[in-house]
Nucleic acid binder design. Sequence first.
DNA 1: TTGAAAGCGTTACCAG
DNA 2: CTGGTAACGCTTTCAA
Lengths: 352, 352
Amino acid sequence: MKRPTQVDVAKRAGVSRATVSYVVNGLANGRVPISEETRQRVLEAVAELGYMPDARAQALRSGSTRTIGAIIPDIRNPHFWEYANGIEQEARAHGYRIILSSTSLSQEYEDDTLQDLAQRRIDGLILQGSFTTQTKKVNNTLSQLIKRQLPIVKIGEPTENIDSVWSDYRTVTQEIMTYLLSLEHRRIGLIYGVAPPILAEDRLVPYRECLQAAGVPVDPELIAQCGPTIEDAYQAALQLLLLPSRPTALIAINDMLAVGVLRTAADLGLQVPTDLSLVSYDNIPMANYLVPRLTTVSKDAVKFGQEAVRLLLARIEQPNRPVQRVDMPIRLIVRESTGPAPVLMTQGGDDG
Amino acid sequence: MKRPTQVDVAKRAGVSRATVSYVVNGLANGRVPISEETRQRVLEAVAELGYMPDARAQALRSGSTRTIGAIIPDIRNPHFWEYANGIEQEARAHGYRIILSSTSLSQEYEDDTLQDLAQRRIDGLILQGSFTTQTKKVNNTLSQLIKRQLPIVKIGEPTENIDSVWSDYRTVTQEIMTYLLSLEHRRIGLIYGVAPPILAEDRLVPYRECLQAAGVPVDPELIAQCGPTIEDAYQAALQLLLLPSRPTALIAINDMLAVGVLRTAADLGLQVPTDLSLVSYDNIPMANYLVPRLTTVSKDAVKFGQEAVRLLLARIEQPNRPVQRVDMPIRLIVRESTGPAPVLMTQGGDDG
DNA sequence: TTGAAAGCGTTACCAG
DNA sequence: CTGGTAACGCTTTCAA
């Protein structure tokens, strides 16, 4: 009942181990030195014995695992499965497997995860931009791997010396702000979850700048940072919407958080978009089904994933090619969660 | 720039390869034959070189990968990440790694996935009940693995000769029906997605039986089968709700589908629960934040996953232990999406 | 066209 | 306490 090895197959087929290897791997590398009859006999033996090559031994011998590691930050956010889908599709199309890891559970496992992937000798690694912001230990491990020439692609945040696929959120965030301001919103809140530094630069800065350009004071009370869960967003929105002079529009850093905001609004008896406008980012599949449908920033996360794999495979084949930075388009999709600002009684009117 | 091996570490530390192995693996097996000074020297060399043991070689030699494969049916359904979370947590606590695969993308990849896992020589496998219903090829591969004594645990569907963790949905489905009937609902629709046979037995049968027991005719028009996406549910609900004599209550087989149903209701100008009651299953984290909050069947999926790992590890350690079947409790949570049946004009009144 | 044999990096046994 | 050495299952070169 032990697992059959090449030797068993060879014995059964009456050939040598090498022959089995040739047959199993599709007629050796180019040269076709196996007679059809032998091939059939080997194939039969394989089928009868239920032989499955041992990937560990294959990888050890051949030097390649044909496996790509992908680390996503939060498995609970639908946005990230789309990356995962794209990655998986593209990788499979090229004969690579994916080992998918999520660090959502616990930050302390990040280094663990990375170590594990490294020890498995994956052929390449796809990371989210937020990854490197973590502990020193993680960064050490990571730079170790970079030094070892492990092909790496980063999603979401361009980094020096590393291939990356990302989008520039400045422009679209400006667009959001212009749009909200044009709807006469003046008290605009911002809710963002666990945030890598780039989020600040990408979204917080344009948010501030647009406000200032419009002559609207930036009120730090309107900026809430929170955890990644819906409940976190719920609480953050609660805090913002209970302000004496409450915001009439809220920007949530992703659609999951927007779900929490929607709930907060409902609990406070606020209609969206009549009493409160809401904009978020990601355009997860659900965004177009929520009530109201979310105005959000659309990003083709599946394509992101595919592009990341393309970049990675190119580097695997050609380790010294110049570093690439692919900019993927994103755009604001206006749906039902945004509308003109309501006239508030508490509004201290120096705008207008 | 090549990856350092044990040999490199040994050279650097001025010891033999075996010594390195002992030190790295925590002082050999029981006996502690390494002097503290040597140990330190080795550890230093490891750190300086950034040595990471090669998991492939370790696994090949030791015979164990300390890796568990987990196959979930649909990564797009939040319900399944909770399983994944539970599995990951419990596995990690016992020093095992997880390779997570989703077959959501394409049924044709199921066999691929299974083969891959088998070739990686995982120590155990956790499956969803729906898995075996697939093609003959998959079932062949699977029974091959079973014959090879690969420890397997099934989630969701009890199977002969395989450890499983599941819940009995009959009782809770009866509870749902009793509840809806007590609210005077008579036209109750059922929407279910890609369904393993057990779903039919578990939910369709009690649905029918309860209806009949209450003297309500079972109308096949009220039973819609659909795909797994929100859009699928949207369309299914549309079909049901546009019926001349539309249902006043809908049961969706999971919360994701319920999101689509909610949208359909909104598009038809139907208020939930005033005009339409909605019950679903799973109690995903989001269920308590949707507007209205979903009445749904709560299942602790994280615990499911943990229990599955416990079962699996027990079998790994003790291959011949008796087969276990763990029944996990579930319960109906009444929230805001259900209410008394509206009085419909089209209602043909032979009830009451 | 096929077979023998040399490793891949590790663990673990058994002498030193 | 430490250092050779034989596997683990496979790929691939070199001879036959």
